[in-house]
Amino acid sequence: MLDADFFRRWLIMSTALVDQEAGRLTELDSAIGDADHGSNLQRGFAAVTAALERETPATPGAVLVLAGKELIATVGGASGPLYGTLLRRAGKALGDAPEVTPEQFADALRAGVAAVAQLGGAKPGDKTMLDALEPAVAALEDTTASFAAARDAAEKGAQGTTPLQARKGRASYLGERSIGHQDPGATSSALLVAALAEMVE
């Protein structure tokens, strides 16, 4: 069973990974975006960690809703609302349960990913964060799957954005020039899933 502390530790681990990879995220974003994805997420996840130190949400759902609100409030550009929506919607799906099963977490993440798709009007193959999140959730939903399988699926999905032409977001303005660059949003999404796997291991 996964409790509030599990989700708190996941987000703190995510903050550490975003910190570690911020330079690479910004480098990827400089090719097809505003060159601020790494610094924006760094600021957002630092705010999440600070909020979790100030407050102690009692349930998994409350942890995720708080994190989502912080990301929406502190991250500029599109990634704040998108990541914020992902976590808030997942948190709301978990409700007030003090503990949840991995299966319930997978269902909640599915709801979060659906909300992101609706907000951004994107689908897998459009060269966005969904290209990492969709396969990760699918791996988690598989009854034999693990967080490690989800991490591998997300990483493969992020790498798979390189040959794609962007159809949504700022990168889509580049048309064919977006081909040949790994999507920064998919890359940062894969980091969040990697944090889950790293924590469990």
Results as ranks from 00 to 15, higher is better:
Ala62Glu: 15
Thr26Gln: 14
Ala31Arg: 12
Thr15Ser: 12
Lys92Met: 11
Ile72Thr: 15
Arg43Ser: 06
Ser30Ala: 15
Leu11Gly: 12
Lys69Ser: 15
Leu71Pro: 05
Gly33Tyr: 10
Ala35Met: 09
Thr15His: 14
Leu64Thr: 08
Thr26Glu: 14
Leu71Cys: 13
Gly84Ser: 06
Ile32Pro: 07
Arg88Ala: 15
Ala50Trp: 05
Ala62Leu: 07
Ile72Tyr: 03
Lys92Thr: 10
Ala16Phe: 06
Ile72His: 03
Thr74Gln: 11
Ala58Lys: 03
Val63Met: 04
Leu41Tyr: 09
Ala50Thr: 14
Leu17Pro: 09
Glu55His: 10
Ala31Tyr: 12
Asp34Ser: 06
Leu41Ser: 09
Glu99Asp: 03
Ala51Trp: 06
Leu87His: 01
Ser14Gly: 13
Tyr83His: 03
Ala90Ser: 14
Leu28Val: 13
Phe105Gln: 04
Gly95Glu: 02
Phe6Gly: 07
Pro98Leu: 03
Gly44Asp: 13
Thr49Ala: 15
Leu28His: 04
Gln42Phe: 11
Leu11Asn: 08
Ala50Ser: 11
Arg9Gly: 11
Pro57Phe: 13
Ile72Cys: 14
Ala22Lys: 15
Ala51Leu: 08
Asp19Val: 05
Ala93Val: 03
Ala62Thr: 08
Thr101Tyr: 02
Arg24Cys: 03
Gly91Met: 01
Thr56Gly: 14
Leu25Ala: 05
Pro102Phe: 01
Ile32Thr: 12
Arg89Leu: 02
Pro98Arg: 04
Arg54Tyr: 02
Ile32Gln: 11
Ile12Asn: 06
Gly84Asp: 04
Gly38Glu: 04
Ala35Cys: 10
Val65Leu: 08
Met13Asn: 14
Ala67Gly: 06
Pro98Met: 02
Thr15Glu: 15
Asp96Ile: 00
Ile32Asp: 06
Gly76Asp: 03
Tyr83Pro: 01
Thr74Phe: 09
Gln20Pro: 04
Ala31Asn: 05
Ala62Met: 07
Gly84Asn: 04
Arg24Thr: 13
Val63Cys: 06
Leu64His: 09
Gly33Trp: 12
Asp34Gly: 02
Arg8Ala: 14
Asp36Ala: 10
Thr74His: 15
Thr56Glu: 13
Gly68Val: 07
Tyr83Arg: 02
Arg24Asn: 11
Arg43Tyr: 04
Gly77Leu: 04
Gln42Pro: 02
Thr15Gln: 15
Ala67Asp: 04
Thr49Leu: 08
Arg110Thr: 12
Phe7Arg: 12
His37Met: 09
Tyr83Cys: 03
Asp19Glu: 11
Leu17Phe: 08
Ala35Leu: 11
Asp29Glu: 11
Ala93Cys: 00
Gly44Arg: 10
Gln42Ala: 13
Ser30Tyr: 03
Arg43Cys: 08
Phe45Trp: 10
Leu28Ser: 12
Ala106Trp: 03
Gly44Gln: 07
Ala47Phe: 00
Val63Ile: 14
Arg89Tyr: 00
Asp36Met: 13
Glu99Val: 07
Pro60Thr: 14
Ala51Asn: 08
Gly33Met: 10
Thr49His: 11
Glu21Arg: 12
Pro81Asp: 05
Glu70Ser: 10
Asp96Val: 01
Thr49Trp: 02
Ala58Phe: 06
Glu21His: 14
Gly84Gln: 07
Thr101Cys: 00
Met13Gln: 13
Val100Glu: 00
Gly77Glu: 00
Gly95Leu: 01
Leu25Ile: 03
Ala108Asp: 02
Ala35Tyr: 05
